[in-house]
Amino acid sequence: MDVDSNQGRMGAYLRDHQDKVVSRWTELVVAGLRGRSSAAEVRRELEDLYSLVIRAMSGADVQAAGELRAALAELSRSRARNGFTPSETALAIFALKDAVYELVADTTDLMPEYLAFSRTIDDLGLHTFETYATAREQVIADQAASMLELTTPVIRLWDGIIAVPLVGTLDSVRTQLVMEKLLETLVATGAEHAVLDITGVPTVDTEVAQHLLKTVSAVRLVGAECIISGIRPQVAQTIVALGIEFGDIATKASLADALAHALSRTGHKIGTA
């Protein structure tokens, strides 16, 4: 007996006992929900799924398998949004096996078909799990991207002076982004001074220093000057301890000092009140 005919017989069996199975399935699922959805709502959801399962099992409908997977993905997503764990969603799918088994248990000649059916349902349950994981990863990737955007603003401090306050660890991806944004702003605005403020950078190791030096060097190449500001006492000590050489790059304790330095370079005079 091949799998297809197994599925065909099981499909027919499931169609014949639709009401009973769906009722029992709903019962089982609702028991595990702890009142987060109404029984009527769950039943409607499961009925849709059940009819798709039957169509997929009957084998005649080629699109049904795809539709079933899409419906499960949607279910997994909406449940995840409502605070269900992926296990709960998968268990709700697996409950269909229990519901069917209770009926099939007496008719021993359907056992092979039931086993094949059981495998199919396992597959579907795992599919909801996978969808959940994929959705999660998407959320994480989106957050990482928006965090990058958030943490690298380029601000205009004065005529011809722009600043980039760096917050958080400076890795190569961020450096690249900061560099691109900074250089584009410099070229677009014609600003001649750029201040890199590292007050928000927790630690400066050789790698971070390397990235800073690269940025400074690129800024110089487009024809502007770069000042590094916001060097905290601990950071200064680490830089010296690591033997990092900033060379002729202007470094200042605070953003205010850097602004004053840049203003004096552009020929502005700052009066003290």
């Binding site: 070229v187 690129a218 800024v219």
Partner: peptide, 18 residues
């Protein structure tokens, strides 16, 4: 050297040419 484009500046820095 005047008018270097950002992309060119980044390339040169990555090449280690300052």
């Amino acid at each position: 050297l005047v008018g270097m484009r950002p992309a060119v500046a980044i390339t040169l820095t990555e090449l280690g040419l300052s």
